[in-house]
Nucleic acid binder design. Structure first.
Lengths: 156, 156
DNA sequence: ATAACAAGGTCAAAGAAAGTCAATCGACTT
DNA sequence: AAGTCGATTGACTTTCTTTGACCTTGTTAT
């Protein structure tokens, strides 16, 4: 198990139960896990980014802290609109997968539905001789179509 | 006995008993068999491809891994195999939609899942300047990926 | 005020896997 | 003998992780 994963799990466990919010000391956590403090920033950047449904604030200086807030989604329609705005005309595979993960985590897509979408957009499926630009454009269109289909079914 | 066969057997044995999922380190395995690491990729490509009923995911970097998932054949999976045979390397939009309809009618896909697949393959999503040949090839790959994902979730 | 201290932030480099691809090898076939 | 095709290898690439040196910002004591 990678250290980054351990840290991620640790934080998610803290968030898991009741509150949507944790506060922690960067140096403490780093020492606890025996890693460089900046490793914490890495974890925040790669696992608790806005596109993964989290926001972070922090404060430097004496008594500093890092606060991680889980953003809860309310209303499938709103979600769909938000995500559509984020997608635009072109999207990378990584970003697409992140959005799909977010849909799953927020309960807007079942496990299976998320897997289906990921399968359609994944590298294996799109392993066809096209330029990255064309692939990204195609992905954006497909993802939007699928999210619309999802939203459509949900309030049907 | 060729090394590739040994590696194939080794992996299949690991998969054999209980779980339909193995995780392994590429470099470790290569060292164990005394071959080049890329040999592992060769084995995966030739013996554990989607059309052979397997899916693989992997992660690079520190703590990387390769995960191989077998799509087990129980009831619905037979369906998947059949459909896969029917799809081949290229498929029209009409034919794809027909297959999706069958999946829904036979209870192998929910309404939403079927809509999702249709949305991904539909004309709107694929409205990008590509030749019909390329579109059909792409559709075939995507449909196969999605059906595998579906089959995989069903007996998870 | 200001110096010292106590956080957290940034970024680039090093390290650790895995992926790709073209060249080569070897066993059959013709 | 030449050709074919799967198997094998290794050099090079890409992706992700980890670390550390240096920077910025806030607090506290003088």
């Amino acid at each position: 198990m990678r250290i980054s994963d351990s840290i991620e799990n640790f934080i998610k466990e803290m968030l898991g139960e009741d509150s949507h919010e944790v506060e922690l000391r960067r140096n403490e956590l780093a020492e606890y896990f025996g890693c460089a403090p900046s490793q914490i920033n890495y974890v925040l950047a790669t696992r608790f980014s806005p596109s993964q449904g989290y926001m972070t604030e922090s404060h430097r200086g004496g008594g500093g802290y890092i606060r991680i807030v889980r953003v809860v989604e309310t209303g499938p329609q709103k979600m769909a609109y938000l995500v559509r705005d984020r997608i635009g005309d072109s999207i990378s595979e990584e970003e697409a997968l992140r959005i799909i993960g977010h849909l799953r985590d927020s309960g807007n897509a079942t496990e299976t539905e998320a897997s289906l979408m990921a399968a359609a957009l994944g590298g294996k499926a799109m392993a066809v001789p096209l330029t990255p630009e064309v692939k990204n454009a195609l992905r954006a269109r497909m993802l939007k179509s699928m999210i619309l289909a999802l939203a459509n079914k949900q309030n049907a």
